[in-house]
Design a protein around this nucleic acid. Structure first.
Length: 270
DNA sequence: ACGCACCCCTGTGCGC
DNA sequence: TGCGCACAGGGGTGCG
């Protein structure tokens, strides 16, 4: 479920419980998620102090004073819970701090991942080195998008979901941003004007920023009453609204490509 | 290189 | 109440 804003919100929620704190317990509760947990995860993280938390694309970063970085990805169904009253099914990784606060990574589908690398390997870490710019950064702009899509015949939706072009966009926010910019998800990337890319870039930044703001404000003190992090309700304009009226009056449509749904308004988006 | 289909996994909600 | 199917916000691989 989590896209960039959800990961951003999750990291912000974990920070008060983790930053500056010493880990007294690090416990994988099964061998693997998408891939095996690092075999030395427990040993390298236990006793270490968390120095900072961050985010790159849809990955959360937890750095320690031993020069390690634990990199987590929430996949489709991952979420962190804080100070749970008891462990549940699919609680696959448990962290505990000196203060006896518990952070539990729950991921039913196990499409998520946890990696552990040295801080100095972060830049070269293949997952990140192949990635495009952060969508909220200044280097993600219309000129960049125009250049990276030049000559490409793939639909713009697919190009935006490709993390090598821009890092952190997922299905929901791409659908929403394309709708906001009035661009058809099937429009060939190489065929979109600079002016329309200006609109698209603004739409992407706006959609992400408002989602982050909504996430932050919906998490009072960054911990919801149920102790969960990473989810917040949002009223989408097209996503999940097949058959409902668009604000223009036309009906929102859904199509499926490679097993992924696209929601759009054929009247607003050309 | 590019565009696309499909797979990993479990849970949920729907129609019958 | 049960059953089977479609579908879910990600990412990687492998094919033509």
């Amino acid at each position: 479920m989590p896209e960039l804003p959800e990961v951003e919100t999750t990291v912000a929620g974990l920070r008060p419980a983790l930053e500056g704190k010493r880990l007294t317990r690090v416990e994988p509760r099964r061998p693997d998620l998408r891939r095996p947990f690092p075999p030395d995860l427990r040993q390298r993280m236990t006793g270490a102090r968390v120095t900072s938390l961050g985010r790159r694309a849809k990955y959360g970063l937890i750095e320690t004073d031993r020069g390690d970085v634990m990199i987590f990805h929430l996949g489709m169904s991952g979420r962190w819970r804080i100070d749970p009253t008891e462990l549940e099914k699919h609680d696959h990784l448990l962290l505990e701090t000196e203060e006896k606060r518990q952070l539990v990574l729950n991921d039913p589908r196990r499409f998520g991942s946890v990696d552990l690398i040295k801080l100095e390997e972060l830049e070269a870490f293949e997952t990140f080195s192949k990635m495009g710019p952060e969508p909220l950064g200044d280097s993600f702009n219309a000129a960049y998008l125009k250049q990276v899509t030049k000559g490409r015949k793939a639909p713009i939706k697919q190009l935006l979901l490709d993390q090598r072009n821009v890092a952190g966009l997922g299905n929901i926010y791409v659908c929403e941003a394309l709708h906001m910019a009035g661009i058809s998800p099937r429009r060939m990337g190489g065929q979109i004007s600079k002016a329309r890319y200006e609109k698209l870039v603004s739409a992407i930044k706006q959609v992400l920023e408002s989602a982050i703001a909504a996430g932050g404000s919906s998490l009072r003190d960054f911990v919801r009453p149920d102790g969960e992090l990473g989810y917040f309700a949002k009223d989408w304009l097209v996503y999940g609204r097949e058959g409902s009226p668009c604000h223009c009056g036309a009906i929102v449509k859904r199509r499926v490509d490679s097993g992924r749904s696209t929601f759009y308004c054929a009247k607003c988006q050309k």
